[in-house]
């Protein structure tokens, strides 16, 4: 199995923060983690590598905390929802020019003005990824996902090296590749879920991701 480069650790569960690889020697204690923008929280550590998209990671954790909002106070009820909408736009390739500034200022307001700890910590994954991986956010604004994880921003294609062995078509779980023995295959990007199964299955290395 191919080895991937260590990229970051998400510490403290969905309300925690993302500590980048170059700060991986941060001691696991309350004060030091707070300096990095993370928290002890649940104590959970999620190790991320170069194939993990930090914008998608922030979106994923915020979708959890946003769904947990009770709805009582404005910053958490509406603020986390607006933040999630921006992250969904970025991951979907429809980000707007001022989205990063809006997201950052909104995250700050939700953090300081929410009534309870849920809203106060919900922006942590967003704020830390913006702090340590801002270039990934900027890439999403340009319509690129450097980690190749955001489905809407990733294209799969079959190159000329294809021998028509049909393994990709057999491995595709959604039927996005028509089975055509001895012919160069093609991927229907409308059906494709970017699961990567075809690329893994191809013995010729003929599936290109861009």
């Amino acid at each position: 199995m191919r080895q991937h480069a260590f990229k970051a650790v998400q510490i403290g569960g969905p309300s925690g923060g993302c500590v980048p690889a170059h700060l991986a020697d941060t001691p696991v204690d309350y004060e030091k983690l707070a300096e990095r923008g993370a928290i002890m929280g649940s104590g959970g550590l999620v190790v991320l590598d170069e194939t993990d998209c930090m914008v998608d990671m922030a979106r994923y954790f915020l979708s959890f905390t946003q769904a947990q909002s009770c709805g009582k106070c404005t910053p958490c009820r509406v603020g986390t929802r607006r933040m999630l909408e921006i992250l969904e736009r970025l991951c979907g390739g429809t980000g707007r020019a001022n989205d990063l500034e809006t997201l950052e200022s909104l995250a700050h307001t939700v953090q300081v003005a929410s009534l309870c700890g849920l809203g106060q910590t919900a922006p942590n994954p967003v704020l830390t990824t913006l702090r340590y991986f801002r270039e990934e956010y900027e890439a999403h604004l340009r319509g690129e996902c450097p980690a190749g994880e955001c489905a809407a921003l990733v294209q799969y294609e079959v190159t000329e090296e294809c021998t028509g062995c049909t393994l990709c078509a057999q491995s595709c779980p959604v039927g996005a590749i028509e089975l055509r023995p001895y012919l160069r295959h093609a991927i229907d990007m409308e059906k494709c879920t970017r699961c990567d199964a075809c690329r893994v299955a191809c013995p010729e290395g003929a599936i290109r991701v861009s």
Binding site: T74, P75, T109
Partner: peptide, 14 residues
């Protein structure tokens, strides 16, 4: 005032 302004904008957005 900046925090209050954002909170008011969040209320206005819905």
């Amino acid at each position: 005032r900046a925090v209050r302004r954002t909170v008011l904008e969040l209320l206005l957005s819905d």
